[in-house]
Design a protein around this nucleic acid. Structure first.
Lengths: 252, 252
DNA sequence: CCGACGCTTCGGCGCACGCCGCAGGGTGCC
DNA sequence: GGCACCCTGCGGCGTGCGCCGAAGCGTCGG
């Protein structure tokens, strides 16, 4: 217990924190780490296109600055975001920054973009078309009350129990249960917070979703009907929106 | 309607945005602007302790970067934060940055710190002890439902009507109705979002609150009993918490 | 035990940027 | 009309920082 000291951040502290993300390479690293997983220093160096020594220095700064945490394992150095609040910080900044304007150049890249727009992880919860759809359906079915911010209803608690998601640990978590997170591709909020993370984990655990490369998430053959049923939809409703031009190959 | 372009921000855009806040002087300027009002370039230069030409350059950058908006008026240049989302961005960064550790040096400074800790504006809503108390009481009286995120209840809608705060324009606003904003001094959330802004404006309009210097907010003699009644409290419950040592003068 | 590998430390280079002072232009006041 | 006043553009200076390559250390595998 200290005296009345003003915890109001001075400019210096804010600038030091912002400076961590004010570099091209460090920003790219943090965006990559938004998938919530731990990456090795070498992987990040290759991803960012810099020498290993350069990346090592950047990681040291990010860790000292409290944005990342590291875990040494043998000759590897694994780093990841320091927690949900660090992820939210990066998300917030990324959401405010203007998106890239250049369309995908190759067919391969266009496919990757489309896959990411359909479903991906955003730190520890589900994002993309599927993430926004999830939140929409919870609201439409009265499982969330969207009157003000979003709050879980009693019907929602029952729905969670059916899915096998225990509620007590969610309430115990220090982070908010329900949070809106602006989606990059959809420009609308998807479901974040402790609830978003728990649902995403449950879907992976149940085998409904599986990880593609990077942040990409795919709906499994078993998962499609199961998830549709849980959301009160027909499996076809989970398909990517038709507005996204299907580059060749037509959607099955 | 463009093609599938990935709006996912690349590292460059994120870094450019973060760089705006990565400078000591610019950070100080943005923190000052968190009070939601428009400042002149000269005021900000004096506040930041730099030459006018330097401040002018910084302001140009911040405006070009989309964080500030300006308004020329005669020989003055007024700038303010570009909007609630810009304010939220700065708040988020400031909240994550470590607070200043040094206690207030002079008695005068200690008083100012205590006044800010009691009540201040946070962009366009109420912060400090009073701001946190406001949210707590709304939750305790069932006017907000805090089960998940916070949502306005039907009782809350009635309470707003009694206060003379129309609800329709709040729903129409593009920003979330209820949002939690981490309070620097209390380390707990206070009420933000469209509702927080509307309530704060209503309190000023009704003469319950008045602006002190800078971001400081004071409860008026008329406002104390009125606000207490609206929150279902005794006027004494609005007093600053006893844990904050009252420097001299004892609390009346 | 030796070599491959991943990471880190250390100089050194070069660019970018934050700062100022001064001069100039537009505005408002007397 | 003349004079303060506020703001801005322009060199110029210094510094901080991002980058690399080379060298060194610990770890893992054969």
């Amino acid at each position: 217990m200290e005296p009345v000291t003003a915890p109001a951040p001075d400019g210096r502290a804010l600038a030091r924190l912002a400076a961590l993300l004010a570099d091209d390479t460090r920003a790219r690293i943090c965006l990559a780490l938004l998938d919530g997983r731990a990456w090795t220093a070498g992987e990040l160096a290759r991803l960012a296109g810099v020498a290993p020594s350069t990346a090592s220095d950047h990681l040291t700064r990010l860790v000292r600055g409290g944005l990342l945490v590291e875990q040494r394992q043998g000759r590897h150095r694994y780093v990841q975001l320091a927690g949900p609040s660090a992820a939210q910080l990066v998300e917030g900044l990324a959401g405010y920054a203007p998106g890239r304007s250049e369309p995908a150049r190759s067919l391969r890249a266009a496919r990757a973009v489309a896959a990411l727009a359909y479903a991906r992880t955003c730190y520890d919860h589900l994002a993309g078309h599927l993430g926004v759809l999830l939140r929409d359906r919870l609201l439409a079915r009265g499982l969330l009350d969207g009157a003000g911010g979003s709050a879980l209803t009693s019907a929602g608690r029952g729905w969670l129990a059916e899915l096998g998601v225990p509620i007590a640990p969610l309430r115990a978590a220090r982070r908010p249960l329900v949070r809106d997170c602006l989606d990059w591709t959809e420009r609308r909020p998807h479901l974040a917070g402790a609830l978003g993370a728990a649902l995403c984990a449950r879907f992976f655990e149940a085998g409904w979703l599986t990880r593609g490369g990077g942040r990409e998430v795919r709906l499994t053959p078993d998962g499609a009907p199961a998830l549709a049923a849980a959301l009160g939809l027909a499996p076809a409703d989970l398909a990517p929106p038709a507005t996204a031009p299907d580059t060749g190959s037509g959607r099955a």
